[in-house]
Amino acid sequence: MKALAWHGKHDVRCDTVDDPEILNPRDAIIRITSTAICGSDLHLYDGYVPAMKPGDILGHEFMGVVEEVGAASTLKKGQRVVVPFTISCGKCYHCEKAQFSACENSNPADKHDIGREGLGQPMSGVFGYSHMTGGYSGGQAEYVRVPFSDVGPLVIPDDSVEDDKVLFLTDILPTGWMAAENADIEPGDTVAVWGCGPVGLFAVQSAFLMGAQRVIAIDHFPHRLELARQFGAETINFERTKVYEALQDMTGGIGPDACIDCVGLEAHGAFADNIIDQIKVSTFLGTDRAHVIRQVIMAARRGGRVSMPGVYGGFVDKFPLGALMEKGLTLKTGQTHVQKYTRPLYTAIAEGKIDSTFLISHRMALEEGPTGYQKFHDEQDTYTKIVLKPGMAGSASLAA
């Protein structure tokens, strides 16, 4: 089969590799119909995530049709499914508490030391995202093996609901929703969202659905800011305006009730971080640019809430721990418990309460994936989201 594989920094190739096979009774093989390039994939592309090996198959946002199942799978051949990026057993202590991204059994034991060294405990399994998260092959391919297929995949029963409407249930829509949920939004709140990428835009939409009176979106790409305004957000262009001062002015000197960091470790704006992140990338030390989370903590009102869905992978310098404590802020973080949200969010999509298609700017053939990575990396204001279609004719019309 064909698959997009990582071969080093800024080196993604479309390789021919072996088809996946059933390895365990709860496995299923999915034929991919749609897959997407995620902002988190750019962390791999830029070389900020350790434990990648040349030839690793990328991709954690995908859906498709069941082709083969193991003896203990509850799926049936021919079913159309959306697959969460988090691999979860459904039966461990954390899964039973609906903390699916903290699953104890999805990361093979021989991979545990990688996560334990940098994070204190092994990470849970994730598709296509380094050997720190299990070394699983991802879904930017024609086929993928899905472990614990009786737990993760959501069957889409209505063939009239096209892929574009439900594909983002795999990651970015639940991530934006959980980001807003972690901000403990109350009716009438003012919520500030840093980053108008896919997760940030879904967080804006979710915050309004949860009762926020005002949402202030912060970015520097004009088109992304325009998308945020289409949902009713006020906007700040951080290249033209000092964010802290603007938020103080917009909130009468109080600060936002809730602040959401949808940027993470590749934030723009702090020169010292940009130098440090070139030192010891492979050891977790100094790899994260913490500019946004610093700004978030300083901007939030006293007694406010901070939600951090943006991905961080290592250690940071000059973290405003005093402000976090003295202001009495609540901080909630974590990878998304996708399985907890897929069904209710699917219902919201089917009822027309959530639009998940506005984000797609380009559709490309799987073979064009290397170009897609380069474009998504270099032209983020134009390429807001790329959906890859195995079997699609190449060089298409790149525009949606």
Results as ranks from 00 to 15, higher is better:
389 K>P: 01
130 S>D: 01
174 P>S: 11
332 K>R: 15
324 L>Q: 14
242 K>F: 06
247 L>A: 10
329 L>N: 12
252 G>L: 14
249 D>M: 13
398 L>H: 11
203 A>P: 06
355 D>L: 04
8 G>Y: 04
146 V>M: 13
273 D>Y: 00
162 E>H: 14
346 Y>Q: 09
172 I>L: 03
40 S>Q: 05
98 A>Q: 15
107 N>I: 12
309 P>A: 14
31 R>K: 15
199 V>K: 05
217 A>I: 01
287 T>N: 02
148 F>V: 12
220 H>Q: 04
302 R>H: 06
240 R>D: 11
214 R>W: 00
158 D>E: 15
381 D>T: 15
122 P>N: 03
109 A>W: 00
269 G>Y: 08
112 H>N: 14
80 R>H: 15
139 G>C: 08
23 L>F: 06
316 V>E: 12
178 M>F: 08
51 A>Q: 03
342 T>E: 05
372 G>Q: 07
130 S>Q: 01
336 T>A: 11
34 S>F: 09
5 A>S: 14
354 I>R: 05
318 K>M: 07
45 Y>F: 06
35 T>Y: 05
286 G>V: 05
306 V>R: 02
351 E>P: 02
74 T>G: 07
284 F>H: 00
225 L>P: 10
26 R>Q: 07
160 S>T: 15
394 G>K: 10
322 G>P: 00
36 A>Q: 09
374 Q>Y: 06
34 S>L: 11
14 C>P: 08
98 A>Y: 03
171 D>W: 08
399 A>I: 07
166 V>Q: 05
27 D>K: 05
53 K>L: 13
336 T>N: 06
45 Y>W: 02
249 D>C: 12
372 G>V: 11
137 S>I: 01
317 D>C: 06
394 G>V: 14
165 K>A: 15
118 G>E: 06
185 I>C: 09
223 H>E: 14
237 N>P: 10
386 I>D: 15
272 A>C: 06
268 H>I: 00
168 F>S: 14
213 Q>V: 04
383 Y>R: 01
381 D>A: 12
273 D>H: 03
358 F>D: 12
172 I>M: 11
50 P>R: 10
252 G>T: 00
306 V>T: 01
399 A>W: 07
37 I>V: 01
266 E>R: 14
281 V>D: 08
244 Y>T: 01
346 Y>A: 08
71 A>N: 09
298 M>Q: 14
154 L>V: 10
380 Q>D: 03
357 T>M: 08
251 T>L: 10
156 I>L: 14
99 Q>H: 07
193 V>F: 03
388 L>K: 09
244 Y>R: 04
394 G>W: 01
179 A>E: 08
238 F>G: 09
156 I>Y: 09
349 I>R: 10
374 Q>P: 00
285 L>S: 04
329 L>E: 03
270 A>G: 06
287 T>I: 15
41 D>H: 05
301 R>D: 00
380 Q>M: 14
348 A>Y: 02
230 Q>E: 05
340 K>S: 04
79 Q>K: 03
261 D>G: 13
276 I>E: 15
362 H>Q: 07
400 A>N: 03
54 P>Q: 02
393 A>L: 07
205 Q>R: 11
266 E>A: 11
246 A>H: 02
317 D>A: 02
291 H>E: 12
